[in-house]
């Protein structure tokens, strides 16, 4: 592993204009409104590892995913992958070469495959787009190989997406992501539309493929248990910011940020250990009018005046005044 991280995200920001149309603003009054979906987040991903972003709806995790792959231009900050900036115009040629190596797996396998295309054409699209293989017969062989790799039959290529179940479609989407020999795959909630038994198949498949092909994953999910199963490092997002980032094991054994603790407590306890849980307060505030200071302060039992006015920096893997000031004790990982 080289020293420079494979993927480097620095101070990434994205603002959406959510104002009413111009005419309505003039007639009804009201000002322009902006939504800070992603508000300055930074993280690194090493080659071959799985970094996860976990958060509830409105945390901005999917927006991060789209900016990292270049589907959405950032409002500020930047993404560098293998030394190539995703925004720098001078590196356009290098970025074009980089594109082949980055792929994405989407949440809804019913929407991510063109319903009018046969599966073999879908899987071959990246091969043709990057002109990786010459000759129809060679492409067909490669598509067959890819379908076998994800656990489908090569003959399945002749069918249409609607002839497959959700899990099988997600396998097709994975085959498409692998078709261009991608090295870095951004997975945006890849299993949240699937049933648990199928989810297990897909998660196992993704881990097997990572071992075999040395893939690097950015894994986006709202499901803590899934993230724990997949990721080596985890960033917890709340209202557009990363509030805590740490190794997978530590995060679950010794969560620092009060939000992380609350989130872990809220996960239904299938082990039925009868553990005592702290009641959860409130809901995520409207991201158009986020609270000042620490975004979590209205729900936080440890908030004080400083938390309500001053935004805590991400320090020692956690963005929390109470932790930094040692006002709350930090559990130690076993």
């Amino acid at each position: 592993m080289s020293n420079a991280p494979f993927v480097e995200v620095k101070d990434l920001r994205r603002v959406f204009d959510v104002s009413k149309p111009w005419l309505n603003r003039v007639l009804e009054g009201g000002e322009k409104q902006y939504l800070k979906a992603v508000d300055g987040i930074s993280f690194d991903i090493a080659r071959g590892e799985t970094f996860a972003l976990v958060g509830e709806s409105g945390s901005g995790k999917s927006t991060v995913a789209r900016m990292v792959v270049g589907l959405l231009p950032p409002s500020g900050g930047g993404v560098t992958i293998d030394g190539v900036s995703m925004a720098d115009a001078a590196q356009a040629a290098a970025r074009q070469r980089l594109r082949r190596r980055i792929q994405m797996i989407f949440q809804d396998p019913y929407a991510s495959l063109n319903p009018r295309w046969r599966v073999d054409r879908i899987v071959a699209e990246p091969i043709r787009a990057f002109d990786l293989i010459k000759g129809e017969r060679e492409i067909a062989n490669r598509v067959g190989e890819l379908l076998s790799l994800v656990g489908l039959h090569p003959d399945d290529g002749k069918k249409f997406p609607h002839e497959f179940s959700g899990g099988q479609r997600q396998r097709i989407a994975i085959a498409r992501a692998l078709a261009s020999n991608a090295e870095f795959i951004v997975c945006d909630e890849p299993t949240s539309a699937l049933d648990v038994s199928v989810q297990a198949q897909i998660l196992n498949l993704m881990r097997d493929l990572q071992d075999r092909l040395g893939l690097t994953y950015l894994f986006i999910s709202h499901n803590l248990a899934v993230v724990r199963h997949m990721a080596s490092r985890i960033g917890v997002m709340y209202l557009g910011r990363i509030v805590e980032v740490s190794g997978g094991r530590e995060l679950f054994q010794a969560p620092k940020h009060p939000y992380t603790r609350m989130l872990l407590d809220a996960v239904p306890d299938i082990g039925m250990t009868g553990r005592q849980r702290v009641p959860v307060n409130g809901e995520i505030p409207n991201p158009i009018n986020p609270p000042s200071g620490c975004p979590f302060n209205p729900r936080c039992p440890f908030a004080n005046d400083r938390c309500r006015t001053e935004r805590p920096p991400l320090d020692e893997g956690v963005a929390c005044h109470a932790v930094h000031e040692r006002r709350i004790d930090v559990p130690v990982a076993a």
């Binding site: 594109r99 699209e125 787009a129």
Partner: peptide, 13 residues
């Protein structure tokens, strides 16, 4: 806005 179009855009089509 469906993901199959996003997937195609991702390929630089």
């Amino acid at each position: 806005n469906k993901d199959y179009v996003q997937a195609a855009r991702l390929l630089g089509i």
